[in-house]
Structure formats: C-alpha cells, structure tokens
C-alpha cells in the first residue's frame, strides 16, 4: 500500500512538473531596422528633420543610437520638388538633423522622402494648417498667495480666457504651451471641460475641439507659477497657442499617454500605447502646426 501511495504521489508530482514547465522557443518577427523620422514644422521657419534608426527590442541605451549623416532627405511642396535637406551636425547639446534653407509656408502640403542605406525608403506627407484668424486673451482672475515654506515666494494662479476664431471645418487640434520668467508654468490646466491631455515631453496641453457650427471657441485656462516680488518685475507671462495638424495631435497625444503610463509603473500595470505613426516604411512623425504667442499682463 505504501508503495502504491509512493507511486501515485510520484506520478502526480511528475505530471504536475511537466504541466507547469515552461518551454521557451523563438518567435519569428521581422528583424530589419527602419528609419525613425521626426519633424514638427511650422511656417516662417526652415524644416528640421531628425533621422535615426530603430534599435533591437530591449536595447534602450542612448549610447547605442545612431544618427546617420549620409541620409538622402528630399522635400516636396504641393507635390513638386522643393529641396534636398542639409545635414547639420550636433551642436549645443542638440542631436544632428537635416534642415532646409527655405522657410515653410502655411496651407502648403509638404512631402518628405528619407533614404538611409540599409533601410527601406521612408515617406510621409503633411499639410500646414491655416493660421488662427484671431486670438484674444482675457485674464479672468489672478490669485496671489504667499508661500508658507519659502519666505518671499508668492504662488500666482491666473484664470485666463482664450477666445479663438477658427474657421476650419471638422475637428480642430491645439497645443498650448506657456511660460513665465523663462520657465514653464508649474501647472497648467483646462477648466471648461474640453477634451485635453497634459503632456510632459513637450510641456503643455493638447486639446481636441469637436466639430461645431460656430467659429468661435473659448478655452478657459488656469496657470500657476512662482514669483519673487523682491527680485522680479511683474513682467507679462507668455502663452503659445499652436493649431496643429491631426498627425501632430495624435502623435503627441500617444507619446504623452505612454509617458503617463510609464509613470504608473510601466507596462506591467498599464495598457501599452500604440504611438501614432504617419511615416510609411518607418516610424516617427512628420507633422506641422501654426503658432501664435500672446503676452498676458497681470
């Protein structure tokens, strides 16, 4: 009987062991690298295109990144050849890029073609949105509170109303950035219920406006920043309103969501984000915006 028990127990343990064993084996995925193309362009400035390559999964070391200096980057405007972009080496801490000599124009559709030896040719297209017709700013309220911990520091909270006249049909997209005393606001938030996301990688707020019959849109914004009255003048702070292309919005929104996701303890507890990609045969973003900068007295 004891022998029978022993055999039974052994059989169970053995089968359980077999059942719970993990057997690793490879899954075939495409291994070729692709171009990474990143360019956010705006009128009255030359185009800057950052070109790099994808790296193997898990090899997330900046030192392993390569930025080719021999890529052929060709720009087309409304379907016609515009220019071959010129390689500009790394300087002032910035990474190398390819730039155009001419400045971009609003309402023009730009196409790009990037050829790096060993990688497929990447292409993309984007149209610069028309400019904002009119933007007015109105300070609704200003609140100044003396900081309890740091003597002489004042926390300033401003409630601002931005009136935007936008004649575009369909959904429209905005990127708000702001600064006071040459640094970004401590906090910037939308208070009138618009669909928005605060992003960190480019500091600011992305807003999606629904399609509406009215061309007037109001954005109610609350910003806060520090002010040292003893050392600083009450100089105006700045708010930059970018009207973006859809690709600009979707890309930066997805990057922002991935960043937030990473803050929440990474992929183990979060749904991984699919980064919006409008590069054919490559990854990245080729998109445009028009900007309007406003100084706000307070």
């Amino acid at each position: 009987m004891r022998r029978c028990n022993y055999i039974l127990g052994l059989a169970i343990v053995l089968t359980l062991t077999m059942m719970s064993c993990e057997h690793d084996f490879d899954v075939d995925v495409p291994r070729s690298t692709q171009n990474v193309v990143l360019a956010n362009f705006t009128p009255d400035e030359p185009m800057k295109v950052y070109v790099s390559s994808t790296v193997p999964i898990g090899n997330v070391d900046s030192s392993s990144m390569k930025y080719p200096n021999n890529a052929d980057v060709t720009l087309y405007a409304n379907g016609a050849y515009e220019a071959d972009l010129i390689y500009t080496p790394s300087h002032d801490g910035g990474l190398p890029y390819y730039r155009s000599s001419a400045k971009m124009s609003p309402g023009v559709t730009y196409d790009i073609e990037v050829h790096v030896i060993g990688n497929p040719i990447s292409t993309s297209s984007n149209k610069i949105p028309k400019g904002l017709e009119l933007v007015t700013t109105e300070v609704v309220s200003i609140k100044e509170e003396v900081d309890d911990e740091f003597e002489g520091l004042v926390n300033v909270t401003a409630n601002i109303l931005l009136n935007v006249e936008d004649n575009t049909t369909g959904e429209s997209y905005f990127h708000l950035k702001g600064s006071a005393f040459e640094s970004a606001f401590n906090e910037m938030s939308i208070v009138n219920g618009l669909d928005h996301l605060n992003i960190l990688h480019e500091e600011g707020i992305l807003i999606k406006m629904p399609d509406s019959n009215s061309s007037n849109t109001s954005i109610q914004l609350e910003v806060s920043f520090y002010h040292f009255p003893e050392f600083e003048l009450r100089i105006p702070f700045e708010i930059e309103i970018r009207k973006c292309s859809r690709d600009y919005y979707l890309f930066h929104r997805s990057v922002g969501e991935q960043e937030l996701s990473n803050f929440r303890d990474g992929l183990l507890s979060s749904q991984s984000v699919q980064i919006h990609n409008n590069i054919v045969d490559g990854v990245g973003n080729f998109s445009s915006y028009v900007a309007s900068i406003h100084s706000v007295e307070w």
């Binding site: 995925v29 495409p30 291994r31 690298t33 692709q34 990474v36 990143l38 956010n40 800057k48 950052y50 790099s52 390559s53 994808t54 790296v55 193997p56 999964i57 898990g58 090899n59 997330v60 900046s62 990144m65 002032d92 801490g93 910035g94 990474l95 890029y97 990688h201 480019e202 990057v255 991935q258 960043e259 990473n262 991984s272 980064i275 990854v283 990245g284």
Partner: peptide, 18 residues
C-alpha cells in the same frame, strides 16, 4: 518589432518607445 527613441523639438533625446 523594435524600439525607437523620441527626440524632443529642441533636439534633446528623450524616452524610448516600443
């Protein structure tokens, strides 16, 4: 299929993405 690195608009390297 790979990772890639985001480059901020000011040209500084940022985080990696799948």
């Amino acid at each position: 299929y790979s990772d890639w690195q985001y480059i901020r608009q000011d040209g500084t390297p940022d985080i990696f993405f799948f």
